[in-house]
Computed example of a mutant assay.
Amino acid sequence: MLSKDKMDRINELSKKKKAGTLTEAEAKEQTQLRKEYLDTFRSTMRDTIENVKVIDPEGNDVTPEKVKEAKKNKFLN
């Protein structure tokens, strides 16, 4: 997860962009911070999905094979 300071900075830059006062240097910083945020989000989401186990009402494991493979590959690396 991104630090509170970085999240605050993303929001601050977003407000400046909406106001039309964003400088070129700040636009580059905003792009970099957004990329970092998305990378962190995707990584967290991937980890969450790889650790999900789907059970049907009868108690059978119906986790998609793709998720099982991703989990297996993660532990092998």
Rank of each mutant, 00 (worst) to 15 (best):
K35L: 05
L22Q: 08
E24W: 01
F75Y: 14
E65L: 13
E36W: 14
E36D: 15
D5M: 08
K17Q: 01
M45A: 14
M7Q: 12
K17Y: 03
L22V: 02
A27Q: 07
A25K: 13
L76W: 05
E12A: 04
R34Q: 15
E50S: 14
L33P: 06
T23S: 14
M45C: 10
R34E: 08
D39I: 02
M1F: 03
R34S: 09
R9K: 12
K72T: 09
K15W: 05
E69I: 10
M1Q: 09
K66Q: 14
I55C: 09
V52H: 08
Y37D: 02
L38D: 12
D8L: 10
R46Q: 09
R9G: 00
D47I: 03
E29L: 11
N11S: 11
L2G: 03
D5P: 00
L13H: 06
L38Q: 15
E69P: 00
F41S: 00
M7L: 15
K68V: 06
M7R: 08
D61R: 10
K35R: 10
D61W: 10
L76M: 15
T21I: 11
Q32C: 02
K16G: 01
K28R: 06
E26L: 04
K16L: 07
D39T: 05
K28V: 06
S43C: 00
K35M: 09
E50W: 10
K66S: 14
K16R: 14
K6A: 08
Q30Y: 15
P64D: 00
K16Y: 00
D8P: 00
V52L: 12
K68P: 03
E50I: 10
K72I: 04
L13S: 03
K74Y: 15
Y37C: 00
L76G: 03
T31R: 13
S3N: 15
K35H: 09
G59Q: 06
R34V: 06
K74W: 13
V52E: 09
T48R: 13
Q32V: 11
K71C: 07
L13F: 03
E29P: 04
K35I: 04
R42M: 05
A19V: 02
L2M: 13
I49R: 05
K53I: 09
S43F: 10
E12G: 02
T31C: 01
V52S: 09
K66E: 15
R46D: 00
S3K: 08
K16D: 08
R34H: 15
L13P: 02
N73D: 12
K18M: 05
E58I: 02
P64S: 02
E69S: 10
E36C: 11
D56C: 11
V67H: 03
E24R: 07
E36T: 11
T21C: 01
G59L: 01
